[in-house]
Each structure stands twice: as structure tokens, then as C-alpha cells.
């Protein structure tokens, strides 16, 4: 299939008082239409910077990002982002109106808005909290509501920055399989950041591993395992160790606790 996202020699630099940070250095890769790419990398290696650049929030220093033939200059609803931050819901709207409002801005009719909001709230198990305001939810509940909002919008490209990072193992497992099911149904292109090796293998068609300071692509690994994938299988375990090794060789420490052995998470 055709390239949906093409990134060519992307550099991003932050200039600060304590000197400059080369957040991304010479990043080039492509994502095919309908592909699910997961990104792994140590904290601070530039994963958020990369996904924010694709979303159009971060101006590159050099290089370009192409969506088909079109170059990214600004954000748009064709690339909906689930942010890593917990304050991405509008606090002045209820959980449900956060979703219906987003749909309304994107031209959906009243009836459809209501139906979609109810459907996706149920998917993330927040059906009883539609009338609550964001400040009344826990961190993980807020993330789930934001996930529901992004899924309801059904964008061509879904950009997810550690969306399941703050969820318990059960909820995470449910949402992982829901996301895969939905992706298989509607065929959107997904770029998904995670700290969790198992999650990266479970979800991705390919896993991109990054290294830090400066942020570079270490390797991109194909996941040739039939879905649904089971962590207990030998091929899964083998890939897990490959990725673990890729991450470990350089500046890997603080993320170790997130990555338990397969089958134990």
C-alpha cells in the first residue's frame, strides 16, 4: 500500500537557557496506509516530539513530513492526537460534551453525535460518567475519555502518545484488544507510543525503537506474528528479548520497571 506518512531527514532542536537540546536527529521512516506502528524508547528520547511534529504542533528545524503529497504545516482533524498530558479534556465541558463537541466541530449531526458518544464511552467503560466534569475523574479515567473522543472522531491517522500509560493491567488489556478490533474494522493508520515492550509487540505491525541524546531511530522491527497475539508463544518471547536488547544497550534504566517479562504483565 501507499505511504500514508513519510518523514524525511527530520531534525528538531529546542533552544534553551541551559543550551540546546537536539531532540530529534535525522529521522527518516514511513508508515503505510492502514499500518499500526508502535514506537519504543527511553524517557526523553524524543517520542513525544516526533509525534507532535507529525501532528503539526512542532516546527522542524530541518527535514519534512509528508502526508501523501501534502507537507505538514499545521495541525488538522485528519490527524487526531491523544496527548500524554492529563489536562487534554476541556474542563468546562462534561465528559460526554467533550466528545459531542469534538464531533460537532467536525460536522456531525446531533443524533449521530449522541450515539457515537454513548458508544465510545461504553467502550472505555465510562458510560456512568458522561455527566461528570473532568476534574471529578481520576487520571486514568481522563485518559480513557480522551481516547474515546479521539476514536469517535475516526480520523485517517491516529496519533497516540502513551495512551494506556496510566491504566491498570486489566483495563489496559481490554482497551488494547478494543483498539486492535476497531483498527481492523475501520482501517485507520495508527502511530502509538509506549514504554511497554509487550504492548508494542501486541499492537504493532512494526515496532520502531529509538535511542536518546540525540533522538535517533535505533531500529525498526517487523512483527511477523499472526493476530491475535499471545505473549506466551516462543516467537513473542524471542521478539521481546530482541527489543529489550535494543533498548538496553544505551541509556536504559528508568524504564526497566515498566517492562516485566512476557506473560507476567
Amino acid at each position: 500500500m501507499a505511504d500514508k506518512v513519510l518523514i524525511e531527514n527530520l531534525f528538531v532542536k529546542f533552544e534553551g537557557e541551559q543550551g540546546n537540546i537536539q531532540a530529534l536527529e535525522d529521522i527518516s521512516f514511513s508508515v503505510k496506509e492502514g499500518e499500526f506502528l508502535t514506537i519504543l524508547g527511553p524517557s526523553g528520547c524524543g517520542k513525544s516530539t516526533l509525534i507532535r511534529s507529525i501532528a503539526g504542533f512542532q516546527k522542524p528545524e530541518k527535514g519534512r513530513i509528508l502526508l501523501g503529497k501534502r507537507q505538514v504545516h499545521e495541525p488538522g482533524p485528519d490527524r487526531i492526537m491523544v496527548f500524554q498530558e492529563f489536562d487534554q479534556l476541556f474542563p468546562w465541558k462534561t465528559v460526554k460534551s467533550n466528545i459531542t463537541y469534538a464531533l460537532k466541530v467536525n460536522g456531525k449531526g446531533k443524533e449521530e453525535r449522541e450515539r457515537m458518544a454513548a458508544h465510545y464511552l461504553e467502550m472505555v467503560n465510562l458510560q456512568d460518567f458522561g455527566g461528570a466534569f473532568p476534574h471529578q475523574l481520576s487520571g486514568g479515567m481522563k485518559q480513557r475519555a480522551a481516547i474515546a473522543r479521539s476514536l469517535a472522531l475516526n480520523p485517517e491517522i491516529l496519533l497516540m502518545d502513551e495512551p494506556f500509560g496510566s491504566l491498570d493491567a486489566q483495563t489496559r488489556a481490554v482497551l488494547q484488544s478494543e483498539l486492535v478490533r476497531l483498527w481492523q474494522k475501520v482501517g485507520s493508520t495508527i502511530i502509538f507510543i509506549t514504554h511497554n515492550i509487550q504492548e508494542a509487540i501486541l499492537l504493532g505491525d512494526r515496532v520502531m525503537v529509538m535511542s536518546s541524546a540525540p533522538g535517533r531511530i535505533k531500529d525498526i522491527v517487523d512483527v511477523n506474528i499472526a493476530r491475535p497475539r499471545l505473549p506466551e508463544t516462543p516467537e513473542f518471547m524471542a521478539l521481546w528479548h530482541t527489543l529489550y536488547g535494543l533498548l538496553e544497550t544505551k541509556r536504559f534504566g528508568e524504564n526497566g520497571k515498566n517492562n516485566t517479562m512476557p506473560g507476567k504483565d
Binding site: E74, M81, F83, F90
Partner: peptide
Amino acid sequence: TQLEVGRNLGL
């Protein structure tokens, strides 16, 4: 973040 969510939605 909220400003970016707004721009992301197309506002």
C-alpha cells in the same frame, strides 16, 4: 494542551 486540542479539532 487544551489549545492544541482545539487546533487539532480544526478550530
